[in-house]
């Protein structure tokens, strides 16, 4: 593979009042091995930001830092500011943080419970007891995830009986029940067929009206179809971060251009 100057980059900045999450000089280590190098970037509110890059480029690792899902596996240093607080600080209540910054994973991972229990389990554990309120949340989350029509008559069926695409939308619905501020999606459609992928993309697009969405994708077309901003990662470095239209038509870095034109990855 061609060697690129990894210190050269082009990263967009936003006005402070638009920023939902602000990462500064983030480094991630797995034991001795460093997998993310000095990444600084800001995430604007109510937009869809896509991470692209070859596998092993560190994009998923970085995404998982944004709600401290790397806590037990990796060491993260640097600052990630949310609501004026550095979420990496030990004073942060990580459980509350994850309610604010939700996550959906690559493989659909519904609980081995009924569809309804999948959505209500966490709510109940977080102390919401009012049945009316719970039913309300179930309905609205399913609607937002565009799953309501398909499952409204079978809420008590096991979630294991859903198709892959339905299960993933259930996971999105489950994340929304927490009413988060930011949603992290880690390659949410990579395990799905094209039709389910289309549906989920449409769902994501709609969700961005209410939430800030940060997603990792393997699929460049997906990034160009739905995201507002795109960040290109290469070998653990953030190389370029800009408006999606700019990245895909007129990238300023050579590595970005080579990647999107299919020279590697």
């Amino acid at each position: 593979m061609k060697q690129y100057d990894l210190t050269k980059n082009n990263i967009i900045q936003f006005k402070p009042e638009r920023v939902a999450l602000d990462a500064k000089h983030v480094n991630v280590f797995y034991g001795e091995k460093q997998s993310t190098f000095d990444v600084s970037m800001q995430f604007p509110k109510n937009r869809i930001i896509a991470f692209i890059g070859a596998s092993g480029s560190g994009k998923s690792t970085f995404l998982r830092c944004l709600n401290r899902m790397n806590d037990d596996v990796a060491t993260v240093d640097g600052q990630i500011n949310y609501e004026g607080l550095n979420i990496n600080s030990s004073a942060i209540n990580v459980y509350e943080l994850r309610k604010q910054i939700g996550m959906v994973f690559q493989q659909p991972n519904p609980f081995a419970k009924s569809i309804k229990d999948n959505l209500t389990f966490a709510l109940k554990k977080h102390g919401i007891k009012d049945n009316k309120q719970i039913d309300q949340v179930v309905k609205s989350s399913l609607k937002k995830a565009a799953l309501y029509e398909e499952v409204q008559d079978s809420l008590n069926k096991s979630a294991m009986s859903l198709s892959g695409g339905q299960a993933q939308r259930l996971c999105i619905a489950r994340a929304i029940t927490m009413n988060p501020d930011i949603l992290l999606l880690d390659e949410p459609t990579s395990a799905l067929d094209p039709i389910s992928t289309k549906k989920i993309e449409a769902t994501i697009k709609e969700l961005s009206e209410k939430y800030t969405i940060i997603m990792v994708t393997h699929n460049m077309q997906q990034a160009s179809r739905i995201s507002d901003y795109t960040a290109f990662f290469h070998m653990g470095h953030l190389i370029e971060y800009d408006k999606t239209s700019k990245i895909f038509t007129n990238p300023s870095e050579e590595a970005t251009e080579d990647y999107i034109t299919g020279h590697f990855g």
């Binding site: 899902m69 994850r98 991972n109 609980f111 081995a112 966490a122 927490m178």
Partner: peptide
């Protein structure tokens, strides 16, 4: 599957709740 653990944690559940309930 470890995915189940991650699902629980990502909903802001404690590890203990995740273990017990999921």
């Amino acid at each position: 599957s470890p995915l189940q653990r991650q699902a629980g944690l990502s909903l802001g559940l404690s590890r203990w709740e995740t273990i017990k309930g999921v």
